[in-house]
Design a protein around this nucleic acid. Structure first.
Length: 755
DNA sequence: ATAGGGTTAG
């Protein structure tokens, strides 16, 4: 919102207005200046001031009238625009065209069409405005109809139609239109529309192909085209291409240009060129808020949160985009108060900033605060809905999410597809088929059922509720079926243990992506068919799909279960090749795989890791313990504590097992006691079983028996079995007798074989 | 008066 102020004198200082009686003649150049003032004021949102100038002009020309009408339209005053239009006796084609675009701008398609029909004369610009109006309102059929009916067409007509196809993701039609254009007719906008259209639908190869085509025609790329080319390259994962575009930029004298520079920076960050990006950023001769935002956001995406903070402190200025990025950095660090402080520093927070704050709270489990912000924010959009509802879903409060969804319905708002998708996710998680069906019918009422996101949400919801007939029904009637839809059906079948059906769909789908391949691979891993999983993985490499971290995690778990260390090593090589050797979860799986295969190579992985989490430490710890390296495991545990990583339940299971192997009874006791005392973790039955093993193997059988008798959890057959085995080992007939009786009572006759 | 262009929230 732009606040209206009293018009300062200097706006009129060039005009003789205040001193001039309104009937005095103005020189044409003075009228020209007045007209300019009207346009400038309208652009600033100061329509009333513009109107004052308008009224004070004694002889208005057609530009004066048209500027004022257009000024009203720009600021949403359609009624005023219309009455001025009606009052204007000398209206010309331009006046009519302004009204036409005005009605289209606010979605009043019928009114716009009526203006067009009543026009006394039309030129090519009015026809183009009609095409573009339909395009902007998403009515491609009408746009095409008008385009075909036009008496003549120029480059703008063609570009408008193409823009329409691109906005609807109809790239085939867009390309046909582009190819139908005469070579000489194409201008830089035509190239831009088609290239950015491909980028929009993530068809970066195609986008880059067209860019190269353009270079071959000898077209000299403008600054904007270079930027679009860079955005195409940013999806291709090829740093050499970035370099080649930089070379072109140098040739065009645009290498120092901030906008081009920021696009280069962005391309580096999106292509995994972390080193290049940082170097380029530091050497940029001019940086603006866009450059800083891009660099900080990239650091944040790479998980280098502290570097992001450091860079922000270097920036030292206030800019909404930079601050918004920082809010999400702080939220990711778990420092939600710093995020809030940053938000409070923003002078005029926009929707994006509000949304960042909402999801920041939601990410940190502060749902009440998120909700408070949500209801307090001045303008809500699609993301606000998604943020708050999915915040509730992520915090396990599916009911809360659905209540919120209902509350939003009560406010009379019609949810958009993001709102629907989040609500459907809540139903899916909750297995709430009733609400799911209700939302399904709401999507149809709202005309959102053809949206691919909504459709995919419906598929997942029905799949989670085990309603596979409904899954098929939704899938078969979907208009916009994308790879995600196919993938959702596959994972639906897999969740319902229908591996054959899943494979059937996998074979039928037109375009398989990483997710499709990975889900089918992990399905075979989970079904215990590691060899098949590996075979499918090889097929995936052959067809040229780049695996992701999840693919490798699944694969490694297959290797681990097969104890196939050779294959595991082969995976390790692939992981290097595809650049996942620093990925936390992949490294964690590698460690687990090596230790389950009885190899110590996991320790090398561990040593080279740039960052470690609790899972990493536990993997090494239990790996050592399971491979008989009891002493080493204890060392790892101590190292972990020294590194400031608080141990969890699993760490204690590992270290207690290690103590048993190494015969460290005292140490084991101390760790067991520190669990509750120092870490506030209540020992589970498994921890007690570890203790029984520890005491039992040391021959402290009565102490072990007492421990079982006095523990706060119900003993099971496993823990008694452990004690029984220890009794047999140490030939303690008395306790063995008692334990055997206990086991017999529990209905287990031969527990001596366990443990 | 009609067509296009770098960053940020999920």
């Amino acid at each position: 919102m732009i606040r209206r102020r009293i018009t300062p004198f200097y706006y009129f200082s060039t005009l003789p207005l205040s001193a001039t009686p309104s009937n005095q003649q103005l020189h044409p150049s003075q009228i020209f200046k007045c007209n300019e003032t009207i346009m400038r004021l309208a652009k600033l949102g100061r329509v009333r001031d513009a109107r004052q100038v308008f009224d004070s002009i004694p002889q208005k020309d057609s530009v004066t009238w048209n500027s004022m009408i257009s000024g009203y339209i720009q600021n949403g005053f359609l009624k005023e625009a219309n009455s001025l239009f009606n009052a204007f006796e000398g209206k010309n084609v331009r006046s009519w065209t302004i009204m036409l675009t005005g009605y289209f701008k606010y979605g009043l398609i019928n009114e716009a069409r009526m203006v067009f029909e009543s026009m006394p004369e039309r030129n090519i610009v009015s026809w183009n405005a009609l095409v573009s109006g339909y395009v902007q309102n998403g009515d491609l059929r009408k746009a095409r109809e008008v385009f075909d009916d036009m008496p003549e067409r120029n480059v703008t007509s063609w570009n408008s139609l193409m823009t329409g196809y691109c906005r609807c993701g109809m790239m085939k039609e867009a390309r046909e239109t582009f190819d139908r254009m005469e070579e000489g007719l194409k201008n830089s906008v035509s190239w831009m529309v088609i290239i950015s259209g491909y980028v929009e639908v993530k068809e970066y190869r195609e986008a880059w192909g067209v860019f190269l085509m353009m270079l071959r025609t000898g077209t000299r790329p403008s600054q904007a085209l270079l930027v679009v080319g860079l955005s195409a390259v940013s999806g291709l994962n090829d740093l050499d291409l970035v370099l080649s575009l930089r070379t072109i930029a140098v040739k065009l004298g645009l290498e120092e240009d901030v906008v081009v520079g920021t696009a280069v920076l962005n391309a580096y960050t999106k292509n995994g060129g972390a080193y290049e990006a940082v170097k380029f950023f530091e050497l940029m001769p001019e940086k603006n808020e866009y450059s800083w935002t891009t660099m900080i956001a990239a650091l944040s995406h790479w998980g280098k949160l502290d570097d992001a903070v450091a860079l922000y402190e270097r920036y030292g200025e206030n800019d909404v985009a930079v601050q918004t990025t920082m809010m999400s950095v702080y939220a990711q660090k778990g420092d939600v108060f710093e995020a809030r402080r940053t938000f409070d520093e923003i002078l005029n927070p926009n929707v994006i900033a509000w949304n960042a704050m909402i999801s920041g709270y939601a990410q940190n489990g502060m749902l009440e605060e998120a909700k408070e912000m949500f209801f307090r924010m001045p303008v809500r959009n699609a993301v606000s809905w998604a943020a708050i509802i999915s915040g509730f879903v992520q915090n396990g409060s599916n009911k809360g999410a659905l209540d919120l969804f209902a509350e939003l319905l009560r406010t009379g708002s019609v949810p958009n597809y993001w709102g629907f998708t989040s609500a459907l996710l809540a139903c899916a998680n909750d297995g709430d088929i009733e609400s799911g069906r209700q939302i399904h019918s709401l999507t149809i009422k709202a005309g959102a059922q053809n949206n691919s996101f909504v459709g995919n949400g419906l598929i997942s919801m029905y799949a989670k509720c085990k309603k596979m007939e409904d899954v098929s029904q939704v899938f078969n009637t979907m208009r916009m079926r994308d790879t995600v839809s196919w993938n959702s059906v596959i994972s639906g079948f897999l969740e319902n243990c229908m591996l054959d059906d899943a494979e059937d769909i996998f074979k039928k789908m037109p375009k398989r992506d990483v997710v499709s391949w990975t889900s089918i691979i992990s399905a075979y891993v989970q079904a215990g068919q590691g060899e098949t999983a590996l075979k499918i993985f090889l097929d995936m490499l052959i067809v040229g799909i780049k695996p992701n971290e999840l693919t490798f995690t699944s694969l490694l778990s297959a290797c681990a279960n097969l104890a196939a260390v050779k294959l595991g090593q082969q995976c390790h090589a692939w992981i290097f090749k595809y650049g996942f050797s620093s990925c936390l979860c992949v490294c964690n799986s590698l460690i687990t795989m090596y230790s389950k295969c009885g190899s110590i190579d996991g320790l090398h992985v561990f040593e080279d890791m740039p960052e470690r989490d609790i899972v990493t430490w536990n993997a090494v710890l239990t790996g050592c313990a399971q491979n008989g390296l009891g002493k080493e495991a204890v060392e790892v545990f101590e190292e972990m504590e020294a590194a400031g990583v608080p141990p969890n339940e699993i760490s204690f299971l590992g270290v207690l097992g290690a103590c048993t192997h190494a015969g460290l009874v005292e140490k084991g006791r101390a760790y067991f006691n520190s669990m509750t005392q120092d870490h506030g973790i209540n020992p589970s039955i498994y921890h007690y079983t570890c203790m029984v093993n520890l005491l039992g193997s040391a021959g402290l059988l009565s102490e072990a028996e007492a421990l079982i008798e006095n523990m706060p959890v119900e003993p099971d057959s496993v823990i008694w079995g452990a004690l029984l085995a220890a009794c047999k080992l140490h030939r303690d007939m008395e306790i063995e007798q008692r334990v055997a009786e206990r086991l017999l009572k529990m209905g287990h006759k031969d527990m001596g074989l366990t443990s």
